[in-house]
Design a protein around this nucleic acid. Structure first.
Lengths: 249, 249
DNA sequence: CGTGACTTTGACTCAATTCAATGGTTGTGG
DNA sequence: CCACAACCATTGAATTGAGTCAAAGTCACG
C-alpha cells in the first residue's frame, strides 16, 4: 500500500499498485480492502470487464463539483484531495485519499451530483469502473451491501466529529488536527515526516482558516518545537504536544 | 403524520400514530416510509414480534451518548432532539425528529456506541425493536439494504452541507438557518408558526452560538420584522428575508 | 409571594479576518 | 544563464465578529 509507482510509469495505463500488470481487479491490492473482500472472483471479473485507467498530473482535477458520478473511482497510485468552495472565496478540503481508496464514493452511492471536486495532489492513477457494473455487483451481493452500510455509518460519525472540531476549536487546535490528520493519512513508516507536499493554503483549507493565519500558527508550532518545517515538508517533533493542543486549544 | 396523540393517551402503551391499536407494525404509519416500504408482511411480523413501547415525558432522555444501541427506535408520537456536549460546556443539537422517523439510526447501523444523546422535547412515545430482529430483516432483504445505503449517502451530503454552514456562516445566517430548519421540521400546515417550544439555549445549540448571542440576533430579526415571537412561540413573517440572510449573513 | 429557571441587555475582551506590503522560489523563454 | 513573471510565503496593523461576564428583568409554579 505504501509502495508507489515511480512517476515515469504513470503514462503506461498500468492500473494496479501491486506491481502486477494486465491482471486487473482480481489481483489488485484493493481486493484486500474490507469493503471488497466480500466479492467473489466472478464479481471481480464483472468489475474488471470494463475497467479503464485515468492518469492525472499534479493539480489535475479528476472531477468537478456538480457533475454526475459515472462510476466507481479507485485510487491506484498517487494522492488526491476532495475540496469545495467555501462561502468566502476560499477552498475547504473535505478529505485526503491514498491508494486503494474510493474517491467520491458517497456521492456515487447517493445517486446525486458530486458535492465536491477531486484534485490530484501529485501525479496519480485512478481506476474507473462504470456505474452499471458496480451497481450490478452491489445489487446481487448482500454481504457487500451490509459492509457498505457499516462503512457509511462509520463515515457519518467521523464527519460529525470533525465538524464539531471545526466549529468549536480555536485555530491552534484546528491546525494541530490538520497536521495530525495529514500525518495519519500520509505518514512514512520510518520517520515523522509527512509524505505530501501541501501548500500553506491547503493547510488552511484543511483547518478552516485563512492562509495568513495558518502560516502564523505554523510559525508558533515551529518556535515551540512541536514541528520542523522545510518548505512544504513538515516533520513532527512532538506528537504529545500536538495532541494536547488539539484538545485544549 | 402530523396528527399527534393527545397527551393523556401516552401512558397506554399504544405504539401507532395511525390511531389503530393492537395491530403493530403492519398498520403503523412508518410502513409508508420509503425505507420500510420494501418490507413484506412477513418481515413486518418479525419486527413486530418483540416490539415494545417507550413513553417519555418532556425532557426525558431516550438514551445517553456513549451507551450501546440495543435496537431500532422509531418515534411514534412527540418530538425528539439529538444533542451532544460541545467543548465549551454547552450543548450542540445535531438534529430534530418527528413521528415515523428513526432515532439514532446511523449509530445502530455503524455498530458503535451512541455518538449523541436523544432527549424528548415534549411527551413522546417510541417503538423499540430489538437489534436482532432488525438485523435479521436487513440481512435478508436486499432492497432494504440498498435503500439504507441511499439514505445514508444522502445523510452524509446533508451533514457536510450543514457543517460547512456552521463553520463558515456568521451568526445571523446560522440563526436564520436554524429557524428555517425548525420550521421545515415542525411546521403547521395552516400558519407560519413553528410548532415546537424551543428554549433560547436550544436555538443557540442549533446554530452554534452562545445563548446571549442567540437572543441578541433573535431581537434583530424581530426588530426587522422577519419573525414574530411570543415566549417560545416563533412565527415566520418573511421567509424570503430569512433565506437571503442565510445566504449572505 | 418567594424561589429557581429562563430571558434580556450592556460593556469588555479577545480571537480571527482583512488588507496590504514585502520577500522568496520556481519555471520559462529569450 | 539570466531576467522576468507568476505564484507562494511571511509579517504587520487595523477592524470586526463573537464569546464572556455580570446585572437585571420576567415568568411559572409550588
Amino acid at each position: 500500500m505504501k509502495k508507489e509507482f515511480p512517476n515515469q510509469h504513470l503514462g503506461t495505463g498500468c492500473h494496479q499498485n501491486s506491481g502486477r500488470q494486465s491482471e486487473g481487479c482480481m489481483h489488485c491490492s484493493v481486493r484486500n480492502l474490507f469493503l471488497l473482500s466480500a466479492l467473489s472472483d466472478g464479481e471481480l471479473h464483472i468489475l474488471n470487464r470494463e475497467r479503464t485507467s485515468i492518469n492525472l498530473k499534479a493539480g489535475d482535477p479528476l472531477y468537478h463539483v456538480g457533475t454526475a458520478p459515472q462510476g466507481l473511482l479507485c485510487l491506484s497510485a498517487g494522492k488526491i484531495k476532495l475540496e469545495k468552495d467555501n462561502l468566502n472565496g476560499g477552498k475547504q478540503i473535505i478529505s485526503l485519499y491514498k491508494p486503494s481508496e474510493f474517491i467520491g464514493f458517497t456521492d456515487l452511492l447517493g445517486q446525486t451530483l458530486y458535492t465536491s471536486s477531486a484534485i490530484a495532489l501529485e501525479n496519480s492513477t485512478v481506476c474507473f469502473i462504470p456505474k452499471l457494473h458496480f451497481n450490478q455487483v452491489l445489487q446481487s451481493n448482500q454481504m457487500l451491501a451490509l459492509r457498505v452500510i457499516e462503512y457509511l455509518a462509520a463515515e457519518i460519525s467521523k464527519i460529525v466529529e470533525r465538524s464539531s472540531g471545526l466549529t468549536q476549536k480555536h485555530m491552534r487546535a484546528r491546525l494541530a488536527d490538520a497536521i495530525l490528520y495529514t500525518y495519519e493519512r500520509y505518514n512514512h513508516p520510518n520517520n515523522n515526516e509527512i509524505q505530501v507536499a501541501l501548500k500553506r493554503s491547503d493547510l488552511a483549507a484543511l483547518s478552516n482558516m485563512t492562509t495568513a493565519n495558518a502560516i502564523r500558527t505554523l510559525s508558533e508550532f515551529i518556535k515551540d518545537k512541536h514541528i520542523e518545517v522545510q518548505g512544504r515538508k513538515i516533520k513532527i517533533l512532538d506528537f504529545t504536544a500536538l495532541r494536547k493542543i488539539s484538545q485544549l486549544g
